[in-house]
């Protein structure tokens, strides 16, 4: 497997004040980045559990923390409005889900999910993902479906809504009123991320990415 693409020096936010961003986009991203860092939907215990879960699904240093975005999203609305036979509407599902996770951790390790070691946390999630029985109280909710619909459905979506994530994957980011000119395969507009390899060595690319505005 070849080395993964990298985009050193690329910063989507550098285009914030260019033709690539319109006012509604600036407002949306500003609000996202300044999301309150305290629970409004979750209780403190639920927040801790959800925080640990978020850090497991998307590891690494992330600002703002994904749990803050999750809490805000649930505080503001009920998300994708469908429920199934096995997973209730989002607010209810998440509330039940994090409590069930905690009950699983208590059942098997005697402490809440957030206090487990990373390996134990991962092992528990893998058990749930495989659809195997857990030691927790899930009520009418199907753990595997909760994991698929809510955990995997919502948490990565929170991360990839952040400029930090766009920088990491070389995404062009917001694009209005200015869109793109060079549509041809392999061609890059001067306001798109340069990639190590196709666009030169690491130093060249970093230099190019400093001028990506």
């Amino acid at each position: 497997m070849a080395e993964k693409p990298s985009f050193p020096g690329y910063d989507t936010m550098a285009r914030r004040d260019t033709q690539s961003w319109n006012e509604p986009t600036r407002q949306a991203i500003d609000a996202r980045l300044s999301v309150p860092r305290e629970p409004r939907f979750f209780t403190v215990e639920e927040w801790d559990c959800a925080d640990a879960l978020c850090q497991l699904i998307i590891p690494g240093v992330i600002d703002p923390p994904l749990v803050a975005l999750l809490d805000a999203a649930l505080h503001d609305g009920d998300g994708h409005g469908t429920r199934t036979q096995t997973v209730p509407y989002r607010r209810e599902a998440w509330r039940q889900g994090v409590n069930a996770l905690d009950s699983c951790a208590r059942g098997s390790h005697g402490k809440p999910f957030a206090q487990l070691g990373k390996d134990d946390q991962s092992a528990l999630l893998e058990t749930i993902q495989r659809g195997e029985p857990t030691a927790g109280q899930w009520g009418a909710m199907e753990p595997q479906d909760f994991f698929k619909r809510c955990v995997l459905g919502d948490i990565p979506a929170l991360f990839y809504s952040l400029p930090q994530a766009w920088n990491e994957i070389g995404f062009g980011g917001p694009a209005s009123p200015r869109g793109y000119v060079r549509l041809e395969l392999g061609h890059r507009d001067p306001w798109e991320a340069a990639e190590v390899g196709p666009d030169g060595d690491s130093d060249t690319v970093e230099r190019k990415n400093r001028h990506v505005v």
Binding site: Q19, G179, Y180
Partner: peptide, 14 residues
């Protein structure tokens, strides 16, 4: 074109 001459880096070419 969208953005007119303010968006010249796109519109001059598109």
């Amino acid at each position: 074109n969208k953005g007119g001459f303010k968006n010249w880096r796109q519109t001059l070419f598109a």
